[in-house]
Amino acid sequence: MKSLFAPVFIVLITSFSSCVITSPKKYNALLAQKDSLSLGWEAARVKIESLEQEIAKLKTDTSVLSARISDLSSMIKKLDDSYTSLRSNTSSEITKLSADLQRREARLKEVEDILKKRDEATNALKNKLQKALLGFQQSGLSVDIRNGKVYVSLTDKLLFSSGSIIIDDKGKLALQELAKVLKTQPEINISVEGHTDNQKVVNLGQIKDNWDLSVLRATSVVRYLTETEKIENSRLTATGKGEFQPVEEGTSPEVRSRNRRIEIVLSPKLDELYNLIK
């Protein structure tokens, strides 16, 4: 804009200086024109300066916005990279979790199958023992299932004389029938538990208390089953519970009689199950 008005102004000045004779009217007109051009040039100069300031401000704003856009683009790229990585890791993790879940479900199915077979075998063993020992059930023998194990409970009067640890003939007959079944079940472990009532032991010689009596009676049964009936020693365990696990609380003769018992606990070997859940 400056380059446009400056030559015009120079031409006008030159024109004024070259005129030797000019009429007052024409002279006044030229002066008016000159003043008008001067005002226009000044207004244009102010406008130009304002525009130049605006351009400078716009350049500054553009620079700031460009930097902001660059920062945002960098941030977006990082977010995209993080999302891509996360999606990849999540997909991989989901795949691993799915495979692990499938393995666990397969193992759970195996455990359930084993437990089902155990329960079926336990029920079958109970039924077989009930049939084999049917003739002794009126004499104080019972067979039931507790916690996945078969319990053969024999009252002391079926096996021993009062205060004795020697098995009588009737007791031997019951153990013989029991042994016949146990010999057909080599996968069954056998625990023989002796139990007494809460009466103190009196005048029993080497037997000092109910602990001794319960242990020695359990040992007598184990010896008979291993030495006479030839059941493998490794399958049997003898334990004495004394008076501390009664089947019924009370002091009447009937209650004490029920508490004096031998319990033969039959449980399946669970090596397969233990190996599976390690």
Rank of each mutant, 00 (worst) to 15 (best):
T196S: 11
G250Y: 07
A56V: 01
V192L: 12
T95H: 13
G140N: 08
D271C: 09
D61G: 08
E54Q: 04
E254W: 00
T228E: 08
S70I: 14
Y224N: 04
V202S: 05
R68Y: 03
K25I: 01
E49Q: 06
N189Y: 09
R223S: 04
T251A: 03
K170A: 09
L115M: 11
T251K: 02
I167N: 00
L141E: 02
E232N: 06
G140H: 10
Y224H: 04
V64C: 10
E263M: 12
R146L: 13
K269N: 15
K57T: 05
N275A: 07
L134D: 13
R260S: 09
R146F: 12
F9E: 11
I264G: 02
S98Y: 11
S153H: 05
A44M: 07
E229A: 08
T84N: 04
T184S: 07
S234Q: 11
R118D: 13
S164H: 08
V181R: 00
T14A: 15
V64K: 12
R68S: 12
L101K: 06
K149Y: 01
K180S: 15
R87S: 15
E52T: 05
R103Y: 02
E232W: 04
S92H: 10
F160C: 08
R103W: 00
V150C: 13
N147P: 07
N28Q: 03
L133C: 02
I166K: 02
I76R: 08
A238I: 08
S267L: 08
S3F: 09
D100S: 10
K78L: 04
V111R: 00
S63Q: 12
S66K: 15
S162P: 00
R68A: 12
S162K: 12
Y274M: 11
A29L: 04
E42H: 07
D271F: 13
W41M: 14
I94K: 11
V8Q: 10
T122N: 09
L175D: 00
K241E: 08
E249Y: 06
R87W: 07
E187I: 02
Q176R: 08
N89F: 14
R118K: 14
L58Y: 03
V221Q: 00
D81R: 02
D80L: 09
H195E: 02
V143W: 06
S98I: 09
L12I: 15
T84M: 05
E263A: 12
D119I: 13
E243P: 01
N210V: 12
S161N: 14
E263T: 11
L86E: 14
T219C: 11
S15D: 15
T14I: 10
S162W: 15
E193W: 08
Y83K: 10
A218N: 01
I207R: 06
D271H: 06
T226D: 00
A124Q: 10
Q33W: 09
L86P: 01
E105A: 11
V265N: 05
Q199P: 01
